[in-house]
């Protein structure tokens, strides 16, 4: 039987842990709300971009001089995987599920004889993948640690870096692996191909009637538009992942708080039993002492 004093210290330490986890849950909840608003705000741009892309793709389709961002380099040898994770842990399986998905994808591609390169966004993913796939990692990894708010320019930078790699012939295609925010308890690991650009979803009848003129010509516009499309896809993935991270942390911390509560209940029960046992023992001693006299 542990002593009363050691039980008391344990109860106190679990209580302070519970305070921390419940505070982290609150913080995650408010950050989640902010991340969701930001993701919401990014939607109009992406929608209009898509509409423009549809109009363009229709008129450039099949052109032999289509830019590599749209059609790839014509080879299918080197794949770049962009693994988007968080910079911090304590978010349940959030980071490790991305790590696992990236590793499986890398293994699969390599078993098909392809070369794999991995660009990590977020410190946790890098730590995870360094253990087994260190020689595939591209340096330096990207991290937004210490940044208060994700900005579009951050995504644009990633886009530019990937484009530069493509132009230099270092990669032939790129896939981004991230957690899509489904709900607070569900984040879905998503693999999305970004180079070559996926065909835009079929347009609604609303816009198909309009015949656009282009200035300058279609291909020049397309050349400028594609990096932007790439950046917006990265941006969306980053925002989804940020919302997912806070959601995952909120759930994880909620569980931790509840577990701490259970533990406190159990320990308090033990503590009271021990106290009661002590009292009973002392009473017996006194009574049997009195009887002996």
């Amino acid at each position: 039987m542990p002593s009363l004093k050691s039980l008391r210290t344990r109860i106190n330490s679990v209580k302070s842990t519970q305070k921390i986890t419940s505070a982290m849950k609150m913080v995650a909840a408010s950050k989640l709300r902010r991340a969701q608003t930001q993701a919401e705000a990014a939607r109009p741009y992406a929608e209009r971009m898509e509409r423009m892309m549809r109009a363009l793709a229709a008129s450039v389709a099949g052109s032999p001089t289509a830019p590599p961002l749209l059609v790839g380099t014509g080879k299918d040898q080197t794949h770049l995987l962009i693994a988007v994770t968080a910079d911090r842990g304590l978010a349940g399986a959030f980071n490790s599920s991305i790590g696992r998905a990236t590793r499986n994808l890398a293994r699969r591609l390599e078993s098909e004889g392809k070369t794999v390169k991995i660009l990590t966004v977020g410190r946790k993913g890098r730590d995870y993948l360094r253990r087994e796939l260190a020689n595939r990692l591209v340096d330096p990894g990207i991290s937004f640690a210490g940044k208060r708010r994700l900005e579009f320019s951050d995504a644009a930078e990633i886009g530019e870096r990937v484009t530069a790699m493509l132009m230099a012939g270092e990669i032939d295609s790129a896939t981004i692996v991230y957690n899509r925010f489904q709900s607070v308890i569900a984040q879905i690991v998503t693999e999305q191909q970004i180079i070559p650009a996926p065909p835009p979803p079929e347009g609604q009848a609303e816009d198909s009637g309009a015949q656009y003129e282009f200035e300058p010509d279609e291909e020049t516009i397309l050349e400028k538009l594609l990096p932007q499309v790439l950046a917006i896809q990265v941006y969306r993935a980053l925002l989804e992942s940020a919302a997912g991270e806070h959601g995952a942390r909120m759930t994880a911390m909620d569980n931790a708080t509840r577990n701490a509560g259970d533990m406190i209940k159990r320990l308090t029960l033990n503590y009271n039993r021990a106290r009661q046992a002590n009292i009973t023992k002392e009473l017996i001693e006194i009574i049997s002492g009195a009887e002996a006299v």
Partner: peptide
Amino acid sequence: LEIVSPEKLL
């Protein structure tokens, strides 16, 4: 007229 930036509808 609509002006949108990647971060929001302006």
